[in-house]
Design a protein around this nucleic acid. Structure first.
Lengths: 257, 257
DNA sequence: GAAACTCCTTGTACGGTGTACGAGGCCGGG
DNA sequence: CCCGGCCTCGTACACCGTACAAGGAGTTTC
């Protein structure tokens, strides 16, 4: 049992996954259990967001006091790390294998990644804060590296290509999910919220003469389908840009060699 | 003066920049001032990180009590929003204009963006949480859109291309800066910390048979220069991938039309 | 000179947080 | 019967953001 106080002394090792601990599972009177705790945490995180999750509320949800949770977990952060890995488990890796070639495999991976981020808006901020080396996350990472290897890029170029593609997906999914969350908080549909935001922006005196280019684009978009179609269209196209880029680089490496 | 409690009722409008307030500036005995507060906040954020910044500590740093800050600012979040925009002011937009063509302009923008994220590791998590529509941020966004317009992509494709490039930069800078911060916290150089992490990972029983592909890459990298060179090399190459991708798409749009 | 008014700073207090610590309750085995 | 795990809980601490009201300092007005 590693206390939070001791953990703080060595932040480099600060991941649940780096200290093998027996998972304590619950023949206790409350029927508690690490899996049950994590599942409840995921549910609450999805509904209320990262900021609203507190140990006391999570415990109440489970019909227990806050301190009970600490029998199964060292720290609140641990719960979030477990929750993240459980969400990584939602990746449909079989669909990746079923795809025709590396291009489609990459598209499927990107699609799954994006879906995950949008479904669980707390993932983006959390992913930035933890090491993310749970079994499910590693399985996904493994599949990503396999797929990138198939492109034909030489070993030393693959990390770049991986970054280009999946950092993009991460960023895109982050923006998209944050937008969805804000709309929900404002009690509007995404489309209503979008129109609203654009107007607020346009009426801002600061806008005048400072972002006409952006204005053109805003106009163009409000006239084409609903927002979720736009999200999809932009995402697919950006992915095509990335894939086209990789193809070019593969060809260049081939002729350069 | 908008109280935090009232602000919470309408989260959609929750940005300092969306409510024009006279900036209260300080003939007071403490010589306080919004600029001084924001500058001190940036310094503390750089040194101690987002989590460690508290109103009481920031106030102490300025020789004042916590509540004094609330004369100049409604909320702690406001301070962070101001701090972010002040950091966006570090962008060297003149260097962008000085570049030869859109490719180089894009490279300069990406470089400046990355530099900003690495210099201020608290920016990445914060950028995800606020609207980011201060004057400096808008100026940068404006320049980005101008540059993307020069690629020759049609209007409706530009948001995709913008995402592809700058979400990548955001993700890359985020990872890089987080890595630097972790190394610093562990009291090591980045290179030491990298070797250390790789070893910890490799000795993990979970690793065996699960991430050989990753293992190859790790080997390749530890044998090529120091980490900061690798960061640079990977970044430049990924950017080339993106630029190549955009060129291909521009050509396709041209022949398709 | 006194009073009034504005600008700024402060002390105190409230409701929240994560979690350390120690006291117990339940339970199976000796 | 008692003992030693396993599990849960109550209490307490230090810290957080910030509401509220009191007050000091400086300037303006009579």
């Amino acid at each position: 049992m590693v206390k939070a106080a001791e953990r703080a002394k060595n932040p480099a090792r600060s991941s649940v996954w780096l200290e093998k601990r027996a998972t304590r599972s619950g023949g206790g009177p409350a029927g508690l259990d690490r899996d049950r705790i994590v599942a409840a945490a995921v549910r609450m995180l999805d509904e209320e967001g990262l900021a609203k999750l507190s140990m006391r509320k999570l415990a109440t949800e489970l019909g227990v006091t806050a301190m009970s949770l600490y029998w199964y977990v060292d720290t609140k952060d641990d719960i979030i790390e477990f929750a993240m890995d459980s969400v990584y488990g939602e990746f449909d890796l079989a669909a990746v294998d079923a795809a025709r070639d590396w291009r489609d495999r990459m598209r499927v991976l990107a699609r799954e990644y994006r879906k995950m981020l949008v479904r669980h808006p707390w993932m983006s901020p959390s992913a930035g804060q933890y090491l993310n080396i749970g079994p499910n996350a590693i399985a996904v990472g493994h599949k990503i590296h396999e797929t990138v290897a198939e492109t034909g890029l030489p070993l030393e170029r693959r990390p770049s290509a991986t970054s280009a593609v999946f950092q993009f997906v991460y960023g895109y999914g982050t923006i998209e999910s944050r937008f969805g969350r804000r709309a929900a908080e404002a009690g509007m549909s995404q489309d209503e919220f979008y129109v609203d935001s654009v107007n607020a922006f346009r009426n801002d005196p600061e806008f005048t003469g400072r972002a006409e280019v952006l204005g053109e684009i805003l106009d163009e978009r409000t006239s084409h389908g609903n927002l979720s179609e736009i999200w999809d269209r932009d995402f697919v196209y950006a992915l095509d840009v990335l894939i086209a880029g990789i193809e070019v680089m593969v060809a260049r490496e081939a002729e350069g060699a």
